[in-house]
Design a protein around this nucleic acid. Sequence first.
DNA 1: TTTATATCAGACCTTTTTGTCTTAATATAC
DNA 2: GTATATTAAGACAAAAAGGTCTGATATAAA
Lengths: 143, 143
Amino acid sequence: MSIIFSRQCEYALQAVSYLALQPAGKKTSIRELTKKLKIPYHFLAKILQDLTYKKLLVSQKGPSGGFALAQSPDQITLFHIVEAIDGSDFAHKCVMGFPECSGKNPCSIHHQWAKMRDEIYSMLVTENITEMAREMKKPEYRL
Amino acid sequence: MSIIFSRQCEYALQAVSYLALQPAGKKTSIRELTKKLKIPYHFLAKILQDLTYKKLLVSQKGPSGGFALAQSPDQITLFHIVEAIDGSDFAHKCVMGFPECSGKNPCSIHHQWAKMRDEIYSMLVTENITEMAREMKKPEYRL
DNA sequence: TTTATATCAGACCTTTTTGTCTTAATATAC
DNA sequence: GTATATTAAGACAAAAAGGTCTGATATAAA
């Protein structure tokens, strides 16, 4: 099965998107997130914990606790999230899996692929959470 | 870990590439392939078996047996191989993993992603094995 | 200060993917 | 026809990814 992001990463993107829709500073509980996003509770808990450890979210324990974005949403890009969960190997790894594939020693689709990979990368780096939230407020949005 | 193709699929692409470099009709043994490509013997055997079952390769048992392309190399595209091993879900699945993401009900990066996905798809469909082999005959090629 | 409500941490289980092994079937060459 | 080189098939093992559970810890509110 061809994938782009791992399931964990998809869940992370979804959760952060949801948090971006909340009023700044408001803490959202795992319970609310899993209910809205239909992600297994404990699995999401681990992902959020991870994002907190990596300084993308902040957490607070206790009643009325929960998670919130750690930084202003226009400083968090999609790439920050992807990198935190899945790493950034895709940005240099050969599509065909040749270990020594490089510019000097290319695989047969190296250059075509490099172009697309760069486009994907620059999308991830450019797109920030503020823009995502704006997009999500459009009437056709699903959440 | 963000991936595009599964390991199996990478190996399939590598193996088919290698076969494309051989004289038309020549049978290549698993042994030779694993030696050159450094892929685990039995694992590759299974992948080749699979590609044979899916009519992309032909096989012959016995001494001087092995595998060869089943069709003229300009009729086999990268997409044929990827589809056979990994399927074509990536061509319609939501990047963020939202189950009901679609044109009418888009995720926040739906449209940007659709553009890139289409480019990738059309590259896979356009690029055929003949072109790959031509590319591989260039001096800087690694095999 | 107590209690209820959260996250934190880590052990554990399940499924999928990757990889290995063994035996059978088959075709070639002698 | 027999020996040998090769793929076919399927069971098995190991590793990675996905998912669950439980108990500890922190904190806010009563």
